[in-house]
Write a protein that binds this DNA or RNA. Structure first.
Lengths: 167, 167
DNA sequence: TGTCAACTTTACATCGTGTCAAGTGATTGA
DNA sequence: TCAATCACTTGACACGATGTAAAGTTGACA
């Protein structure tokens, strides 16, 4: 809080006049970033897709390219989740939003009869959701040094391998 | 530290006589768990495997079933990584050990000419390492409510889909 | 009997979050 | 024009956690 106040050019106490807690500041920041980066527009392509497979690819691309934009914030928010129920709820809410996208993509695949027979929609959604986690992005891009393009390419391939009927 | 001391039945200060910092206590605990759970024995199957594919499956099973045993500790250790370089190094060391297992499994696949042509061994290792992350286990088992068997089954299938040449 | 090791109690420094109170200065509305 | 109000300031403090320091207790062992 001290650092943020310093960066903004006000006193630490003044920060508390705007945001009652550190968690609320971070949550407000996520809302602000969302409105600036216009998540809805990014997902428009995905919703407009005609085939299930196109919808999946488009959703992965939209979310995958959004991750780097929110990554710093996500680190801060996640590190608070242990001690702060409000922060945990905020993070969980964001992840549930991603899950809804996964549900939609999996539903579109199922409608196309493209979903593997040995997966129900719930498990397929869980798998896709897991593959698309921020942690996996961090691991591949930050820790392993992959480019964003490599990440998106491999995760798309892997998601298709995970969910689609053979051939 | 207060809670641990209370649980052990000694004073908080006495804890500091044994472990200079909280991080060192956690690190010592990982060493202790390793020696008790005998990681080497768990990996023996994997090292004895004759085919690359068997080695992969066996490694996934060994590590995948080890994750729940160290999960609580891994949460504690990871939550310190932000502030504590020593804890970060300890966690990284553990994960590098897992990576070595991935390298060996990928190498065995490559030796069998079973590795996809569009993956070099490094990227294949990165992918497998990512799939086998503790975070993915947490996500599927803890957050999505999967059983350990479902986790191991799907991760094995997914790893094969990710790495193996198409049939 | 004396020494040493393990442990105890007590006290304190530091850091971060969050609270509280009193004061300042500029805008605004009657 | 005067007073209220708003946004901010400074300064102090409580709390919890980690870690340090010092002096005292207890029991084993030589």
């Amino acid at each position: 809080m001290t650092d943020i106040a310093k960066a903004v050019g006000i006193s630490r106490q003044a920060l508390y006049l705007h945001f009652p807690t550190r968690a609320e500041l971070l949550i407000a920041t996520t809302r602000h970033i969302d409105s600036i980066k216009d998540v809805d527009a990014r997902l428009a392509d995905s919703r407009a897709a005609t085939s299930g497979r196109a919808r999946l690819a488009s959703f992965i691309s939209a979310w995958g390219s959004y991750i780097p934009e929110i990554h710093g914030l996500s680190v801060a928010l996640r590190s608070m989740c242990d001690n702060d129920a409000e922060a945990a709820a905020a993070w969980d809410g964001r992840m549930q939003a991603v899950r809804h996208g996964c549900v939609a993509a999996v539903g579109a695949l199922a409608a196309d009869k493209m979903l593997r027979a040995d997966l129900n929609e719930d498990m397929a959604t869980d798998l896709l959701w897991t593959l698309l986690s921020v942690e996996n992005w961090e691991h591949l891009v930050r820790d392993c040094g992959w480019s964003q393009a490599e990440y998106e390419g491999q995760i798309t391939r892997l998601s298709e391998a995970a969910l689609l009927v053979k051939n």
